[in-house]
Design a protein around this nucleic acid. Structure first.
Lengths: 166, 166
DNA sequence: TGTATATTGGACTAAAATAGTCCTATATTA
DNA sequence: TAATATAGGACTATTTTAGTCCAATATACA
């Protein structure tokens, strides 16, 4: 199924949220603000930190923040971080290890598609995801909502948070 | 994980194989020729038949064949048939049922990506998959192989066939 | 220095999805 | 009528994904 994972979706929500923050954000705050369960938030933040998209600080006053400007982070970066290199089939990764590649009859076609997908992902930045109404009139009405309400309604049912979330 | 399923991959192999056949092909022949297990072949052929990409004939002398010319069948058609409508997130399907869509902050961006992916898929036809060397010089060397050998090496390890397949 | 806070690392479990298997009913031809 | 092949569908096994939890480590502050 050609679909990004739910965790990737959550990760995107988290990154979009961090876009609006200047200071270090503890996982507990991110969870409360996004409505995603704290353990899930922690898990994703760890992965994102490891991948270099965000930076972290341990201890009191610690937390996470974006390492680069939102417009310098593409959807491709996000997917690479959370799902690994894009490869819609075994045959279409950049570093394809498909042992049948030299003789593949369909692999070249999937490779072309893979390349197009990657380009599409590179063309969309976190900044655009954060401010979609600039680029995508179909969600223009989102401007009438408050920030917190927007995030809590982003991507289908959210996992239970560790805090009350009305 | 942004990846087509293994069954879709097999399904593609099967369609590519049917491209080279003029007559009705029984599932048993398709299985023998592609090296895919008969039950799996039967399962996929049923689905493909149901979706309208191929037509079937029951009974003695029965089998399956393409319903349209290979160049009129796109990768998008194949995916639609085997995986359902393309929707990389809940928010990006053509008939999105995401209840949060009116307030989605990232959905517009995913929608753009979804559209680009769909276009890439529409741009590649079964005919091109069948004759990749025309379009993709990187697999030019495939011409030195026999047809049967090519197919058996297409997409990673094949499931065991119900027949001997050296 | 001790404590509170927050990340890091990693293991484990539950749920969901995917792939594979098998059986019966139905249709068609010889 | 028998042989052949699809159609329908259920079930099982395996893999993947999402969720849960615990202990170790790092940092700031009193």
């Amino acid at each position: 199924m050609l679909r990004i994972s739910k965790l990737t979706d959550y990760g995107t929500v988290i990154l979009v949220h961090l876009t609006g923050q200047a200071r270090l954000c503890p996982a507990s705050d991110v969870a409360a603000d996004t409505g995603i369960a704290l353990p899930t938030v922690q898990k994703l933040l760890k992965t994102l930190s490891k991948s270099g998209l965000i930076e972290s600080a341990r201890g009191a006053e610690g937390g996470y923040r974006l390492r680069k400007a939102p417009r310098d982070i593409s959807a491709a970066d996000i997917l690479d971080a959370l799902e690994g290199p894009l490869a819609i089939t075994e045959c279409s990764g950049d570093d394809s290890s498909c042992e049948h590649e030299p003789n593949c009859s369909a692999g070249g076609a999937w490779q072309q598609i893979n390349t197009a997908i990657r380009k599409a992902l590179l063309d969309v930045s976190l900044a655009e995801m954060h401010n979609p109404s600039k680029e995508f009139p179909l969600v223009y009405t989102v401007l009438g909502k408050t920030g917190a309400q927007r995030q809590s309604e982003v991507s289908g049912p959210m996992p239970e948070t560790s805090k009350d979330n009305p």
